[in-house]
Amino acid sequence: MSVKHPKVAVLLAAFNGMQWIKEQLDSILNQAAVDVTVFISIDPSVDGTELWCADYAVHHPSVVVLPPAGSFGGASRNFFRLLRDVNFDGYDLVAFADQDDVWHPLKLKRAGEVLTSQAADGYSSNVTAFWDDGRTHLIDKAQPQVAWDFLFEAAGPGCTYVLGKALATKLKLSVAAQWVELQDVSLHDWYCYAFARSNGLKWIIDPVPTMQYRQHQSNQVGANIGVGSLLMRYKTIHDGWWFSQVQLIAVLVGKQRHPFVQRWLLLGRKQLILLSFSAWACRRRFRDKVFFFLICWATAIVGKKTK
């Protein structure tokens, strides 16, 4: 008697991915105890990614390349396109994939089991960052969730996300309904986590790493390690990008009228100081809570760059 495996729709956003995409696709198609279909959306590339993926799909029936849809200009818009255009009927789970990582063989099986055993709607996990020179580093995002972390950070790398059918369906509807506004969201994984939590859905962040997270110069968002990364984070905050994303996501997930959010949403000097005293409820990791407190005060005193 055959065992029924969960059917998983894997959404892969590609752009100039020839250097890594074969290894990634092979690792996805070699997932154990699940039936996988990979849907690839390609941002117009100059390295032959489109032709290579088309040929790969011919020889692998479980790979579907979506028709061209113009230039996205970033992974976030590409993933929103995948969420909008891929039909999830007949699938039990929906997963996100980057083009340059390597998945552990049991990644999707484990995610499905965790979602089922914990009656959860969304899943993400820790990852092992790796570099071409052989270095590795555990990226730990599995600190306990707090009341408002979803408005200020993602649930770890989006390439680890696995969504239950109910969450994926609701998310698809929200993407279609807010398509224009979502074009200004820079990080799809942050929005997806915020959408789930703001709708009262259960999310699990698994402490077990389920994939190798490749680090290279083309990463849109890489491993948050070291002083250089801290300085880069400060720059995005000082430039106004991070706080503008916080405001946008709070509005898009319908939390702008919540009393807690109303106290700081304008992000003026007084609001930032008030927000700083809620740092414990806004970030998961202790180091990030301290940084959050300090950056609220620094921004209140120094201000943000004006555009």
Rank of each mutant, 00 (worst) to 15 (best):
M1A: 08
S2V: 10
S2N: 07
V3H: 09
V3Q: 14
H5K: 10
H5L: 12
P6F: 01
A13F: 12
F15P: 00
F15K: 05
N16I: 07
G17I: 01
Q19N: 14
L29P: 10
A33Q: 07
D35Y: 04
D35L: 03
V36K: 04
F39A: 04
I42C: 15
D43R: 12
D43A: 08
P44F: 10
S45A: 02
G48C: 04
T49I: 05
L51N: 13
V63C: 12
V64I: 15
V65W: 14
L66S: 11
P67S: 14
F72C: 01
G73E: 06
N78C: 15
F80I: 00
L83D: 10
L83W: 00
L83R: 03
R84L: 13
F88I: 15
L93R: 12
A95Y: 07
D98L: 06
D98F: 00
W103N: 02
L108Y: 06
L108S: 01
R110V: 03
R110H: 08
G112Y: 00
L115C: 08
T116D: 10
D121R: 01
G122Y: 06
Y123Q: 03
Y123N: 03
N126K: 05
T128V: 08
T128P: 07
A129C: 11
A129P: 07
A129K: 04
F130E: 04
W131F: 08
G134N: 14
D140N: 13
D140S: 12
D140M: 02
A142D: 11
V146D: 05
D149W: 12
F150S: 07
F152A: 09
C159M: 12
C159D: 08
L167W: 00
L167T: 06
T169G: 13
K172L: 02
K172V: 00
K172P: 03
V175Q: 02
Q178W: 04
Q183A: 08
D184E: 14
D184G: 14
L187H: 12
D189C: 10
W190V: 05
C192Q: 05
A196L: 04
A196Y: 01
I204R: 10
H216A: 11
N219D: 12
Q220T: 10
G222V: 13
G226F: 02
G228Q: 10
L231D: 01
M232G: 11
K235N: 08
W241Y: 14
W242C: 08
F243Q: 11
Q245K: 03
V246N: 05
I249C: 04
A250H: 11
V251C: 11
L252D: 09
L252C: 07
K255W: 00
Q256A: 14
R257S: 09
H258Q: 13
F260P: 01
F260M: 05
R263M: 14
W264M: 13
L266H: 12
R269Q: 13
L274K: 10
L275N: 02
S276L: 02
W280H: 10
W280Y: 12
C282Q: 09
R283E: 15
R284Q: 13
R284N: 13
K289Y: 10
K289E: 06
F293C: 14
L294Y: 11
A298L: 15
A298F: 15
V302H: 03
K304T: 15
K305F: 13
